[in-house]
Computed example of a mutant assay.
Amino acid sequence: MKPETNRNRGLMAALLAITLTGPAAAFELDSDIPIKVTADNARLDDNQGIATYTGDVELEQGETHLSAKRVVLYRDENGLNRIEAFGNPARYRQPSREGGGETDARALNITWSAADQRLIFERQAVIEQNGNLFRGDIIHYDTARRVVTAQGGADSGEGSGRVEMVIQPRSTDRRTDRQESDGSSEGQ
């Protein structure tokens, strides 16, 4: 791999980590707020610790929301430890940590792992927040360290297969203030 490619990937990861102010920990297992699941069908295998929900599945905890065609919950002796969602696409929404907007993410597969403190969006993954957009074949979000990494995929004809980012400027207030001070813009 070329050094330039490695440098670009490092820059991309740094930009994603700086601009994405995502959820604190996705689903809060230590919370007193229960996780509510509704679906058309449910199957619980208590011996295996697996619950499978199908048909317009809605999973909520407080303001965190996951919707999909199929959701599988895995639990062990410590409780719920993994959630897998499948849809066309599956969708994850949660208010941002700082209260400035909402994280709206979608992918064909979404996996949340309590042990890894990680959200993984796979296949046609898109995360939008406050006008910022991140698109890739696979997007990993480490909720503990607040680090996002994204990977492109094969060119499917619907795009280049590369990771795409749209990052909004930090503040548009400064440009507005400059224009209002003398009635003209700085660039004229």
Results as ranks from 00 to 15, higher is better:
Leu59Gln: 00
Val148Ser: 07
Ser184Tyr: 11
Asp45Asn: 11
Asp45Ala: 07
Arg70Thr: 07
Leu66Asn: 04
Gly87Leu: 10
Phe121Asp: 01
Ile110Pro: 01
Leu15Pro: 00
Arg70Tyr: 02
Ala25Ile: 04
Phe27Trp: 07
Leu16Gly: 02
Ala85His: 01
Arg7Ser: 14
Gly161Tyr: 04
Glu122Gly: 09
Glu28Met: 12
Gly159Tyr: 08
Gln48Ala: 15
Arg93His: 08
Glu58Val: 11
Asp32Cys: 01
Gly79Glu: 08
Asp177Ile: 14
Leu119Pro: 03
Ile167Pro: 00
Ala13Phe: 03
Gly159Val: 04
Met12Lys: 03
Met165Asp: 06
Tyr53Gln: 05
Glu77Leu: 07
Thr38Pro: 05
Glu128Val: 12
Met165Trp: 01
Leu11Cys: 02
Ala114Val: 14
Arg75Pro: 00
Ala90Gln: 00
Asn47Gln: 15
Thr111Tyr: 10
Arg9Lys: 14
Glu4Tyr: 06
Val126Glu: 12
His140Ser: 10
Ala51Gln: 05
Glu122Asp: 12
Pro95Trp: 01
Asn78Trp: 06
Ala24Tyr: 08
Trp112Met: 13
Asn47Cys: 09
Asp173Ile: 15
Ala13Leu: 06
Asn47Asp: 15
Glu122Trp: 03
Arg135Glu: 15
Ala39His: 05
Ser171Lys: 03
Asp182Thr: 06
Asn88Val: 11
Asn6Met: 11
Arg135Met: 11
Val163Phe: 00
Gly152Ile: 03
Leu20Asn: 07
Ala13Met: 07
Gln94Lys: 10
Gln129Val: 12
Leu44Gly: 09
Gly131Asn: 13
Glu158Val: 06
Thr21Lys: 15
Glu63Met: 09
Ser171Pro: 02
Gln61Tyr: 03
Gln124Asp: 15
Asn81Trp: 02
